[in-house]
Design a protein around this nucleic acid. Structure first.
Lengths: 151, 151
DNA sequence: CTTGAAAAGAACTGCCT
DNA sequence: AGGCAGTTCTTTTCAAG
């Protein structure tokens, strides 16, 4: 674990919002020279705090207008059935995230579909037929707000 | 909505995995020249499909080892109480994501905490005191797998 | 679409306070 | 820690086929 100063936090917040910012941009924005900003970014990367960079793909622009969060409870929870379930669920193209969780459900999935009838098809043909699936609970996404988190 | 060819899909998958890839990298990987690859990336950006770039911050490296998904049901759901709830919940630093959803719960939150007793503090002092909160249901994250999605 | 080249900008290094 | 000056490298952008 590493501790950060205010400038590090400002850098992380800025980069979480816009990953295209260069060291020069960050320096100008927060009153540091380009090399000083660059050294900070490098330090954050080497500490593993800046873990990677990704692009944001707008699936709605591609016709995937429905996002559903699905809680899944397994019927039989042997060690084998967890692995079987994970292997099968990650093979479904519409599944974006697989969270193995503790609580009322065993897994939480984020699933995208073109529309609700497309989601029904995925649920009936792909999800309910997965090995070991018991109860499921669905929540359809209306709106999403991303926050910087505790940095 | 836009339709993509196989190369576009390959670009998006590669960039979703590693946002640092340049047009030259993508071209080499998928058999295009650098300018051709660059024009494709630009087209995807202008179509809004490549919506932005962000860095991945490893909150575990900063001492936030616990992630909890929290379903929240509101007790009274007037129009005003939704906005009050959203304003109050987005002000909690540990809240990373606020999903307004349809289903058994009204909101789904992604919350990070240093440990479980830190999470208990957030839950009791910050969440349960939010305006209009009724039932809550928590799932503690054990492991997370990200998938490319249906592109 | 390609190649080639020029221009711009970002990354990186040494040295100094 | 940070700044300045400079070099190197990559990316961007244009020209021409």
């Amino acid at each position: 674990m590493t501790t950060l100063d205010d400038t590090d936090r400002a850098f992380l917040r800025a980069l979480a919002d816009d990953g295209t910012l260069s060291a020069g941009d960050l320096g100008r924005r927060f009153g540091l020279s380009q090399p000083a900003a660059w050294r900070r970014v490098k330090r954050l990367q080497e500490a593993g705090i800046l873990a990677g960079r990704r692009v944001d793909i707008d699936l709605e622009a591609l016709g995937f207008g429905v996002t559903v969060f699905l809680g899944v409870k397994l019927a039989a929870k042997g060690r084998v059935s967890l692995e079987d379930f994970e292997r099968a669920v990650t093979a479904i193209p519409e599944v974006q995230l697989v969270h193995h969780v503790l609580g009322l459900y065993d897994y939480r999935l984020r699933i995208v579909a073109r529309d609700l009838s497309d989601f029904e098809r995925i649920l009936r043909r792909r999800i309910m037929t997965l090995p070991g699936v018991g109860e499921v609970e669905a929540n359809v996404l209306l709106s999403e707000e991303r926050r910087p988190g505790p940095i």
